[in-house]
Every structure is written in C-alpha cells, then in structure tokens.
Design a protein around this nucleic acid. Structure first.
Lengths: 359, 359
DNA sequence: TTTTTAACCTTTTGCGCATAAGGTATCTTA
DNA sequence: TAAGATACCTTATGCGCAAAAGGTTAAAAA
C-alpha cells in the first residue's frame, strides 16, 4: 500500500503538498506540482488509509445500522423479508453518499454500544429499538441518531424518527374488516412498546367508531420463539376458534401463520380471514394473496440515511417525526361475512362518535 | 471518550502499563497496579479506538462482504430471500468471532476494491463474484479471500470456495423430472459463468443418462432486468408452450415466474411444472409448494467465516473447495406425466452409460 | 528603497495505540 | 561479593494522515 509519504519522497516534496492536492486545495499548490502529484496518484492508484483519517479528523465516515425485532427460523433478522428490503435501501444510499455501513444485529445492547464507540461511527440508524435500549445508547453516544419504527415518550428524550402512518394504516385495515362484517377480530402484535402499540391505537379507534370496544383478551402477543414452539402454536390454533379474522402486524407472520393454519385444514379466508402489514413480495405471491397495508421500504431507507447525513454534516436537526404514507391493499385473504350472526353490533358506524384518526 | 493516556495520567503511571493490563499481559504488571487499572477500566467503561489500533497493528478486525447477483424489484440484492439468510448467518458469525462486517453491494468493482483497501480489511468474503472481477481484486488485495458460489478455472488462480454439491443437486432434480415423465425441460439460469454453469453440467449428465441430449435452445438465460420488462416475460410465456417443466436455478425466480404464469391462467403443475434451487421459506409457503434442492445457508455462512478467520489467524490455507451437501425436496410443483406423448424416448435410462456424477 | 503581500513551499505536531528499547530496584546464585 | 536474574516500571518511536505554524522567494505597493 502506497502512502502519502511514499509519494512525497518520490517527488522530493513534502507530505503536506501531496495532501493538499488530494483534497483539492490547489490554490496553495503550483499547477506544475499539482500535475506531478496527480500523475503519481493515478499511476499507483492511491487509496487513503481511513483509519488514519479517522484519527485526525473527528469523523470516520462510518454509519452504524442496528436491527432488532422479529427473527426468522434461523434466528436471523436480516432474513426478514421486510427488514432486508429496508436494509438494502439503506446500504445503497449510504454507499452512494460516500459513507460506509456497519451492521449490528446483536441483542446485547452494551456490545452494540462498544461497537459504535470503538469505530467512532458518525451516525446511527436504529431499527425497531426499544425505549430503554435507546436511552442507554443516548447516554453514551453523542453523535446523531435516526430511528426507524421506534416510539418513545417525546418529553423524555428528543429524537428523529422516520416513521409511518401506522395509526392510520391500522385504522383503515380495521374499518375494512368491520365493513366486511367481521366483529371478532384478534390483533396480533410483536410487543406493546413500538409501532405495534401505535397500530393498536388505530385499531381501537376504528372499533370505537363502530361502537365496539377493544378487549384486551383479543390482543395476542406473538413472540418469535412462540413460532417455533408447537405448544404455543397449538394454543393459538385453539384460540383462533373465537375469531373470524386475524389482524397481524407484519406480513411475515401473517404468511407464516396462514401456512400453519392451512396445513391444519383451516380454509383461508372462509374459516379465518388474515391481514398483514408491510406488503412484502411474499404477500403478493401466496394464495390467497394477502390483504395488507403497503409501505415503501426503499423510500423509507433512503429518507433515513438522507436525514442522518443532514444531521451529521449540517449539525441541524430536521423534522423529528416524519410519517410516511401507507396504503390499504385489498386482496383475497379477507372473507365478506354477509349474514353476521351477532346481532348486538350494527354494521353501520354509530353516530356522534368522532371520525377517528388524528393525522 | 476516555483514552489510555487519560487513565495513565489519573493513576500516575505510563500508558504502556495500562495497555499491558488491557491486553492481559499481567505477568509484567504488579497485582496492585492491575487492580487499580481494572477498576478504572470498568468505571469509565473504556472502549479502545479501533482506528488507532488498526494503524499500529497490521489487522483491522474488519471483514468485507461483497454481494453480487440477481436483484429484486428494488434493485436490491440484500432483499433476495436466499442471500439475506446467508448474509445474516455471516454477520452473526463474524460478530461472534470478534470481527466487524462491512458490506458492499456495488456493481462497480473498482469502488469495491477502494473500499476494502481504504479500511484495510483483514479478509474478504465474495458471494457470486464473476471470474474477471475476482482476478481484478486478487491483483490489488493480498489478504485472504473466501468465495461463495464462485467458480473459475483453478489453473489460473488459487482460491478457497465454500460451495455446494451443485452438480449433484441439478443431476438429481433432472432425474426426478425425467422419472416423472418430463422430456421437454427448460433450464433457466442467471448466467453461464458461476454455479449455474456447474448445475447445467449436472443437468446435461442426467439427460445423457436417459439417452437424451441437452439442446442449447432449452437453456434460457433470465436476467433480473427481464423480470421487469413485460416484453421479455411475454416472450418467456410464449416459449413456455414448448415445455412441460421449468427447471430454475433459484427458488426466488421459480416463485416469481410461477406467480406470473398462474396469473395468466397457467395451471401449475398441470400445465407447467416448476422446480427451484435453495429451499427458501417462500418455497414452503406458496401453493403449490415448490419442489426444490435444499441447501443450508446458515451452515454455509458460518463455514465461510470460519474458514476465512482460520486463514487470517493461522495464515494456513485449508481445503480450497468444500462442497456442502444438498438434498432433493419433493413437493407439489411437479406433475407426473403418466402417458408421455413422445415415443422416441423411453422412460428407462439407457444401458451402458456411466452412472453420472463425479462427486 | 523599504515594506507588504501573495504564491508556494516545508517543518512540526498530534490523533490513540502498541511495542521496542531502556531503566531501576530487589532478589538469586556461585 | 560480584554477576546475573527477576519484577516492574518508563521513555521513545511510529503507524498514516491533516492541519497549524513557520519559511522563502518574487512580485506589488508604499
């Protein structure tokens, strides 16, 4: 590996002059010298040592990306069809902007913090981080952070979140189910800390508009490890008899559950309707095609990187809670229940109740 | 950020002593001093600056991972269901071993080289690299490299490849199709440079065993951009009438094509049978479930990282061409053709022809 | 003529760390 | 008692780079 000093010695000039040419400070260097240096630069295809640069500059050109959330059968979050699309978009945008990406998928938050600090990452993108972990990171890491799919009490801590119209999405999906005659709807979430909580609020509001009240026993928390355990799945299967529809917080799990249920002879959507969230490729391909809420992960990834780099370079904090649009995508996984057996609820929304969503 | 010098000053000792404690060279430091330093280390949660370390040591603890290959609708290779699982396995293994991962998905090979060199990566994992690009990288980058799914003439260049029994997989799949009565089989590949070429050889050998000869017009090269172009798909649709089975080199494309064809009224497998390669989650979930060749991407990722780190640490080159096992997974996407209309080929393999695969 | 200024250099410093090389006691051994 | 060994420490150096600070020359301004 050729260094600045090597080239300076070859030309009999100082390293500062070579460095100046590299950084385009040509006003301080004669035309003749510039040409000599540039010739050598090309000849040896000089590549700067970024470790050395990071030491002198305050910036490392590294952006850390941390993923947490639902895992697949390989205990592997990158393989999640939604996250992988998002991650791909983030990677290409980071690269396009001249930065480097380092990924951390560890559940160990102090390991994550050590990794960020040891490389002195210029900025951080956190996907699906829980509030407590976010606070821990904030207390040690002072560079800009952009969140994706993370919600926390704003009075506690400032943050920039590249989010979604989650509440609206869940609201519209619930209305869709209600309008098709469903009254016994289970809401399946990862946890009640992050986006799923916001979605649940939308769900509640939609129910309220129809004069219904959300019942906590209809809120089913599905953790990744449950998917593996036959006993948990059996229980879910047993529970499902109480419902006409399963409203899931991700396409991934909706699809996994559909597969499990249909293998056990449940007809979808005749016996049980399913809805998802995200609109991943999978959802278009399976049969019945999944009714879901679409978001644009590529756009979201790009916006997150863009926002972060703005914060890094201009040290100015932009809008702290973007909400990207969602769109209801109706396919074939929801049955229309014409003659609904439970007469206590009318099909029409009740009057006098506020029309709903606050965004 | 606290540094070694900060701590040395606090304790009134030299930086060397602190450094020695950090590296466990406690034989050179008195018990009392060790305790003092360790207390401070814990108190301030000291994290070393890896840029500084990289400068003094010859190693950076960075492993570069480069992906090339088929892309999805977002022009995003990370989102590929097979690559993402593999990548996830690689990431967690790299982290477990105390290294850091940097990803490059750029098609621009000289940009990739610059990135590796600028960070002085200790090693490289290349997925699906083409031979010319590999030669370019080798000429500039002298640290260990492990390939995944890459084949090249071995006499030209030494390399370590963590591969698959590709030939065997394709052979067995072709035999499966032949045994079910298929004679007009299209072989769908990405390109003829990498693993698909090896698979095609297996395909040819299986055909030969049945007294058939592979016809180059049955080899259909499907590039990612064709998936987007309606015209290309229409042409493929038109071509499909000549075949009873589409043998695809990846589940991903098999599934995409199945979806396209069934939307156009083609019944699968009644009108057209499909097979894949990889056995991704998708394949188990779609209907008909896809008959495919299974590989274990998690194991493969781990083995690749393990091999690379062995090369980095022991500077010893292990087995240079591992072939991990594959397994035929028969599901529902292949029709059994009982009365086959073309009398010129018998259902039985011809005698006297060698039994096939060389592994 | 002297001073100023601009153009074009170089020398020096330090980022944080690891290590080679150099100390100074104290303890062993013959 | 002198020579060597041991335990425990420090000083000095350099990795590759960027930038502050310091030169020198020649042209421009006073």
């Amino acid at each position: 590996m050729i260094t600045i000093k090597d080239m300076a010695d070859m030309l009999g000039i100082s390293t500062t002059t070579v460095s100046n040419v590299i950084h385009g400070k040509t006003s301080e260097v004669s035309q003749k010298t510039v040409e000599k240096v540039e010739k050598l630069l090309k000849e040896y295809d000089y590549v700067p040592n970024n470790s050395a640069r990071s030491l002198t500059q305050k910036c490392s050109k590294i952006i850390g990306v941390s993923l947490k959330g639902r895992k697949d059968q390989y205990d592997n979050i990158i393989a999640d069809p939604f996250f992988s699309v998002l991650l791909g978009a983030i990677e290409s945008e980071i690269r396009r902007r001249g930065y480097f990406m380092m990924i951390y998928t560890s559940d160990d938050i102090s390991e994550l913090i050590r990794n960020i600090l040891t490389w002195n990452a210029d900025g951080l993108i956190l996907l699906g981080i829980l509030h407590d972990d976010f606070v821990k990171i904030k207390s040690r890491y002072k560079n800009p952070i952009v969140l994706i799919d993370s919600y926390a009490p704003r009075d506690i801590m400032n943050y920039v979140n590249v989010g979604l119209e989650d509440e609206k999405g869940a609201y519209e999906m619930t209305v869709h189910l209600l309008e098709r005659g469903h009254r016994r709807i289970a809401f399946l979430a990862d946890n009640m800390e992050g986006v799923d909580y916001i979605r649940y609020i939308g769900h509640q509001k939609a129910l309220a508009r129809y004069g219904l009240k959300a019942d906590s026993k209809d809120l089913l928390i599905i953790r990744a490890e449950m998917m593996e355990r036959e006993a948990s799945m059996e229980e879910l299967f047993y529970l499902s008899r109480n419902y006409t529809a399963f409203m899931c917080c991700s396409d991934y799990w909706a699809v996994l559950l559909m597969s499990y249920f249909s293998d056990r002879g449940v007809r979808i959507p005749e016996d049980l309707s399913f809805t998802g969230f995200d609109d991943v490729l999978l959802s278009r391909i399976i049969r019945p095609a999944l009714t879901t809420v679409r978001q644009d992960p590529a756009k979201r990834g790009r916006l997150a990187v863009d926002t972060l780099i703005k914060m890094i370079q201009e040290e100015e904090i932009p809008e702290w809670d973007v909400k990207l649009p969602v769109e209801l995508v109706v396919r074939d996984s929801v049955k229309t229940i014409s003659a609904y057996g439970n007469p206590e609820h009318s099909m029409e929304p009740e009057r006098g109740i506020d029309d709903g969503v606050d965004e």
